[in-house]
Structures are given as C-alpha cells and as structure tokens.
C-alpha cells in the first residue's frame, strides 16, 4: 500500500490545484506565486546536488538557468509564434502543447552541455578556486547573451506569451501551472533516484573524502561531470519554465543575485537534504512575497535572516537529514522507490 501513497498525494494535489485554477478559485497572483515556488524548488534542489551532496561551491547557477531560459524561448517562438526576427512560426501554433515538453528537454540538454564549462575545471580545483570559476562562468554566459543582438541583447526577449495563448486556444487550462507542476515533480523524483542509488552516493563520497573515493574505484572525474551536468541541466529546466511563466526574459534577471538566491535556498534548507531544499524554496518564495510591502528594505531583512540562521543553526533547517529521518513514523506511510 505504502508505495502508492506518494503518487496518490502527488495526483491529488495536482487535481486540486488545477481544479481550483480552472474554476477561477485561485487568482492569477496566487497562481504565479505557486509557479515561482515550483521553479525555485527545481532551482534550489538542483544546486543542492553540487553544493550540498558533492560539497563543491558553485556560485554561478543562474547562468545555466539563463541558457535554459533563452534556448527554450527562442525555440518556442521560432516554432510556435509570429516574430519580427524569426518570421512566421515553423509549425502550427496549436502543436505547442506537444512541443513544449520537448523544448524543455532541449533546454535541459543545452544547459547540461554548458555545465561542462565548470565541470572540466572542477577536475583540478575545488573550494574557493572553483567558486571563482563558477562566478566567471555566470558572467561569461550573461555577457554572451547581452551581446547577441538577434535575441534582443540587453533589452531581453519576448513572445512566449503568445505560445501560451496558443496552448489555451486548444484547451482552456492553466497550462503553465500544469507544466511547472509536472516538471517540479519530475525533477525531485530524478534527484531522489540519483542520490539514493549506490552510483549517486559516489558524489557524497567525493564530498567526504575525494582521495578515498578515487581509491575505492569511484571514477571521480566522471562523477563530477555527471553531477555538474545533471545539476545545470535542471537549472536549465527551471529557466525554461521561468521564461514561459513571465513571457519575457532579460539577461539581468540571471545575474549573480539570482545565483545567490539559489545559495540562500540551499543553505536555508540544509546541505545535502532534498526535503530541506524543497521546504526552503517554498519558504523563501513565500517570504519574498510576504515582505513585498517593504520594497527595497526586503533585501535588508532577508540577508539579515540569513545571518541569524547561520549564527543559530548553521546546518540549515534540516541539516543533512531528510523529513523521514526527523519523523521516522512517516516511513509507515511512504517509501520512495
């Protein structure tokens, strides 16, 4: 029985959310907050693969999000929307429903390949030096985008809204909410499966003692490559969803500040805790909205909270434990497999 609890809950939540949204019981503002929660969950927990589980310090995660956002935006406008630069859509817009998941997967691949930019230097360096390399990678990506005129350069790129409208023309459903939900669940599922396998635990071994990992037959270079590519690929998925939820992307929304938000979520939740990252992403998104009336002072209050957290609970909300470690009774009801 317990192997069905989680899938059932996931389906139930899906039904409730989509149902509420469909019958206008969930206003657009609440919907957008929920979608940003999902995107932040993907963004935070994917960064946790590298920073938490593998113990490296990547500070340029938003760069990969930018790659995912731009690749997916360009593709979906190219295929499904009328655009000044790209001209008429290559495919009838009503195919957008089927095309969108494929585009997100391409965004994953593109961002994963960009991940090589930091994976390859990580063979030789780690710690502070790798942190500097990742910041540099973030800047390289942003600067490249700013200098590419055909995707709008510093002005940003738009047109994705019409793709969403095309989906709604086919079936009037809250499509972006559906996509964000599906990809959030898929990402968590994939990360869980990775880090709970003997293969994936190799990256935890690298974290705790890289020399021992190498001598006990873990191919550390290959593991690092896979971890970085997996992590940056998922950031690309987050970027693709982000771009389509907003309907507009701007290179500056993926700068170092966005990367820092990712770090905040990882350290708030606890390094090496998947449920911690999910909780932290929900909490963080919620906090951002709650403090919105404070306007710019918000960016004083949130860092201050982080300082307090580091003072009194440096391991984050969950430490490196999962929900089922803290509440062992939960295991009666579910078991991931």
């Amino acid at each position: 029985m317990r192997r069905f609890t989680v899938p059932l809950l996931v389906l139930l939540l899906f039904g409730v959310l989509i149902g509420l949204a469909y019958y206008d019981k969930l206003d657009l503002y609440v919907q957008s907050v929920l979608m940003f929660m999902g995107i932040n969950i993907i963004f935070g927990s994917s960064l946790n693969i590298v920073n938490g589980y593998m113990g490296e310090f990547s500070c340029g995660h938003a760069g990969f999000m930018a790659v995912g956002a731009y690749v997916s935006s360009v593709l979906s406008v190219l295929f499904f929307a009328q655009d000044k630069v790209f001209g008429a859509p290559l495919l009838p817009p009503e195919y957008a429903i089927y095309g969108f998941p494929i585009i997100v997967i391409i965004a994953f691949i593109a961002a994963a390949l960009t991940g090589l930019l930091v994976a390859l230097p990580s063979f030789k360096t780690r710690g502070d030096y790798l942190a500097i390399i990742t910041i540099a990678a973030n800047y390289i990506i942003i600067t490249t985008i700013i200098n590419l005129d055909f995707i709008g350069g510093p002005r940003g790129f738009m047109g994705m809204k019409s793709v969403i409208f095309a989906m709604e023309d086919v079936a009037f459903l809250p499509w972006m909410l559906i996509w964000v939900y599906i990809f959030t669940i898929l990402s968590i599922w994939a990360i869980y499966r990775f880090v709970s396998s003997t293969y994936g635990k190799g990256i935890i071994a690298i974290h705790q003692d890289e020399v021992a990992a190498e001598i006990m037959s873990v191919n550390t270079n290959k593991m690092k490559l896979i971890a970085f590519m997996f992590s940056s690929g998922l950031a690309g998925v987050a970027g693709a969803l982000f771009a389509h939820v907003l309907g507009y992307v701007n290179p500056n929304s993926f700068n170092i500040l966005k990367s820092t938000e990712g770090l905040v979520m990882v350290y708030l939740g606890g390094m090496g805790s998947l449920s911690g990252s999910v909780l932290a992403a929900i909490l963080f998104t919620f906090l951002l909205e709650l403090l919105r009336p404070l306007q710019i002072i918000k960016w004083v209050v949130i860092p201050l909270l982080l300082i307090i957290l580091m003072q009194f609970r440096p391991e984050g909300i969950m430490g490196n434990r999962e929900l089922s470690d803290i509440f062992p009774r939960l295991r009666k009801f579910y078991q991931f497999k």
Binding site: T198, G202, I204, N320
Partner: peptide, 15 residues
C-alpha cells in the same frame, strides 16, 4: 567516509 554508515562505505566501494 565518516558521515555515511559503515554499510554505505562498503557498498560505494562496489562502484
């Protein structure tokens, strides 16, 4: 690997 169980220590060596 001090933060993992003894069992995990043995299992990961099967990489």
């Amino acid at each position: 690997w001090h933060e993992m169980s003894v069992l995990d220590n043995i299992m990961i060596a099967q990489h």
